[in-house]
Design a protein around this nucleic acid. Structure first.
Lengths: 237, 237
DNA sequence: GTCTATATCGGGATAGAC
DNA sequence: GTCTATCCCGATATAGAC
């Protein structure tokens, strides 16, 4: 059961017209998702809104979820510039992390309501849509670079054994925060803001403490835990 | 969009025949889920296997996912005795927590493969199937009792401000662990075993340290964070 | 290679008769 | 409480136009 014809993705070369059609379909889909949610939107509506036939919509996107994946890919292309614009390299780690996360939340905010569709299979690394899947690996790794950069720029000193895993851990923390944000029904997502502020303060504080000699064994045990688990479908805990 | 007729649940009184039919459908469904997975199983198959019509299956279960919910309910009824049998009240906290978690994993193990269906909407507190929903509140609260009991029996001394939230936090930790376990594809879920052992050791150790006067402010900040967030759709982070 | 139109299938979910 | 018939929609298939 493999695909008969290679479905056109952003990476494969498309003619100008094709590129335009693809974009129109994706935009129509996202507009409808925003308006009525992911489940409530049908492929037939998307095709109509984009002014193409149903068959054509499926020509460009294998499935309805592929549209969500395309959105995720688009975010991956557009986000880095937003993040770079928001971050002040001379600032402390807490400020930088705040800036990175805020830039992302601001970027995703208009589509917050349907992002749940993207995160439905989040925990399953076998699902292509999962942030832990092999299919999204390039996105994940590029994303972790922001955190590596922030760690470097902030000049925060962290013992090397832990520092090695820190970008990944910070990324994971950020994923948890975003997940919380998606389903946060407090007014203007105020709960997320509080959670973000308080947890970041604790986290950065912890990082300052973790290099103390008394905490050496704790640190080593944390690193051991991380090593034992990584490469698996990561999670909280 | 509310239900037209009250759909029969375990809690509402059913005639003997109805109870039997309902159970037959549920058992057929679970058998098929185990055999072929949740997605691969159709409602038509379930109805056939149970010897009822499709419409009748829907009379007892609003949706395919409601069958998973019923499984969750059944587990909620059966689990406490398993947990109580596994726990030694005189043991230390780490041993007791290990016993509780192991009892649950052992109970769910035969159905591990399709449990992902239950956890797909886990993060969305608005979804009835979510462990954070109002619909599953009674299960959640009964479940947290195991942890409250273990804390009490172990005689572990934890400052009261934190102790108040600890059953909830331990339950959350356990949910994360179970989620990890569901998608753990290492042989015999060994990764989960390692994660469980190491994280529990760290956690119990942290609880011993947290009462030290030097960590008072850290503790207060943690408690503040928990308070600010609870009542919301909880998550990791 | 891009696109339309239409028919069809499979499966979740519902309506209404009995 | 149980059935049959039907709807809806995601997905596929086909045949052909440009």
């Amino acid at each position: 059961m493999f695909k008969k014809t290679l479905p056109p993705t952003r990476s494969t070369q498309l003619t100008e017209k094709a590129e335009d059609t693809r974009t129109r379909i994706l935009n129509a889909a996202l507009a409808l998702f925003r308006r009525k949610g992911f489940e409530q939107t049908t492929m037939r509506e998307i095709a109509e809104e984009a002014g193409v036939s149903l068959g054509n919509a499926y020509y460009y996107f294998e499935s309805k979820e592929a549209l969500v994946m395309a959105f995720y890919e688009r975010a991956h292309m557009e986000l880095p510039s937003h993040v770079r614009a928001a971050v002040v390299p001379a600032a402390g780690l807490e400020e930088q992390l705040t800036a990175i996360i805020n830039a992302k939340l601001a970027y995703f905010a208009p589509n917050r309501a349907f992002l749940g569709a993207l995160f439905r299979h989040a925990a399953d690394p076998a699902n292509p849509l999962s942030p832990f899947s092999t299919e999204t690996r390039h996105i994940r790794e590029a994303d972790q670079q922001h955190f590596a950069q922030a760690l470097e720029d902030s000049g925060m000193h962290v013992p090397k054994d832990l520092a090695l895993h820190l970008p990944k851990l910070l990324w994971l923390y950020q994923m948890g925060l975003i997940l919380f944000w998606i389903y946060d029904r407090s007014p203007r997502q105020l709960s997320t803001a509080v959670l973000q502020k308080k947890s970041l303060a604790l986290l950065v504080n912890g990082l300052k403490l973790i290099r103390l000699p008394i905490l050496r064994t704790v640190r080593k045990r944390i690193v051991e835990l991380v090593i034992a688990v990584e490469g698996e479908g990561d999670d909280d805990a």
